[in-house]
Design a protein around this nucleic acid. Structure first.
Length: 344
DNA sequence: AACAATCACAACCGCATCATG
DNA sequence: ACATGATGCGGTTGTGATTGT
């Protein structure tokens, strides 16, 4: 057991003790550890009636011997009424894997694309299930590269890796911009609140980065529209940029992005496997799925071709390679005993 | 049945960032 | 511009449940 575990904390003064500042939870009398049903009930009842307001002052008002941080965690990860619990669907697993390939361990960002799932839950699921599956099949869960690719990556794939990196950076910037907009919304929201207008509910976990105070359901007003815009819109609006990054010939772009855009349709000439993707009917996952399916090949199945050769590759092989990569991941996902039907 | 090993996930901690005065 | 407090995020741990021996 590491020395800094809870059991040892009482025995060894840590930095905060030396420096004279104590974490909120170490105040005398504050309880730690698992929540009891009574505590849950108190917290729920208080928030349903008053909203959470300041987390720092909530425990006392609610009659809880907990620190505000603990209350916030309990609420956001467990008690919120809009949390979907239970097994992850194949769809969700697919989305997590693909988003992780793009974003890395940015759980909150990943959670924005999985409605009703918390970042903590996604993180746990990744660490206990998905990461292990990828490792089992020889894929590095950090880089999402196949073992063999380490060799290949040093033989002329820099352009494609750079493309992926560029794409990830773009998505990262987009998420940050989205968060900024959400914060600005929140600012407006708070200003409304200060003008004695009721706060809009912050029910949607997808935008929990916006720390708007939560209030009872159905108490919202028009201010909800000020909350963070959905990813779907911004994503599809920026698709052309991403397509440019991917270096896809202009004449082929429409068909290639067909599955990415909820407003587009797939041409008959497109490959069947794309059509068979068990995508949601709409939403951001489609975009990521198709883009990742297309792009991941550069990382996972490159054959050491030089850049020109890659650029000249046929569309068919491009898709075939992608299909193989994600099929391998998804078949593994599908191998989960609890899981639903094969995706491809 | 008893024990050990492993799994799953809730909860905690420390740090980063943001908001405010 | 700076200090301080509040909140969010990601890494990690603790512990009950499950499985294997």
């Amino acid at each position: 057991m590491p020395i800094h575990s809870q059991a040892k904390r009482a025995d060894f003064p840590s930095l905060w003790q030396i420096m004279g500042r104590s974490p909120c939870c170490d105040k005398d009398g504050l309880k730690k550890g698992p929540w009891t049903p009574e505590e849950d009930q108190k917290l729920l009842a208080y928030i349903e009636e008053h909203g959470h307001g300041s987390w720092r002052s909530l425990p006392e008002k609610a009659g809880l011997q907990r620190c505000g941080k603990s209350c916030r965690l309990r609420w956001t990860n467990y008690l919120r009424p809009d949390i979907k619990r239970g097994k992850f669907t194949v769809q969700e697993e697919q989305t997590i894997i693909q988003l992780h390939a793009l974003l890395g361990n940015r759980w909150s960002a990943i959670a924005t694309h999985l409605p009703k799932r918390t970042d903590n839950e996604i993180k746990n699921y990744w660490n206990t299930h998905l990461k292990k599956r990828l490792v089992k099949m020889g894929i590095d869960p950090v880089t999402h590269k196949h073992k063999n690719e380490t060799l290949l990556s040093s033989t002329g794939q820099s352009k494609n890796l750079a493309t992926l990196s560029h794409m990830a950076q773009w998505e990262s910037a987009r998420l940050e911009a989205e968060a900024r907009i959400a914060r600005e919304s929140k600012l407006l929201h708070v200003q409304h609140h200060r003008n004695n207008k009721p706060a809009a509910p912050d029910y949607c976990l997808a935008h929990k980065s916006s720390s708007t105070n939560w209030t009872k359901p159905n108490q919202g007003n028009g201010d909800q529209q000020l909350e963070s815009p959905t990813s779907t819109v911004t994503f599809s609006e920026n698709l052309p940029l991403m397509i440019m990054h991917l270096g896809i010939p202009m004449e082929n772009r429409n068909s290639r992005v067909a599955v990415s855009s909820s407003t587009s349709s797939i041409k008959d000439s497109d490959h069947d496997w794309i059509k068979q993707i068990n995508c949601p009917k709409e939403g951001i996952e489609e975009g990521f799925t198709s883009l990742l399916l297309r792009d991941s090949v550069d990382r996972s199945l490159s054959t050491g071709k030089n850049d020109e050769a890659i650029a000249e590759s046929s569309e068919y092989s491009y898709y075939e390679d992608n299909k193989n990569y994600w099929n391998s991941i998804l078949s593994l996902v599908d191998s989960s005993p609890s899981d639903s039907p094969t995706m491809f």
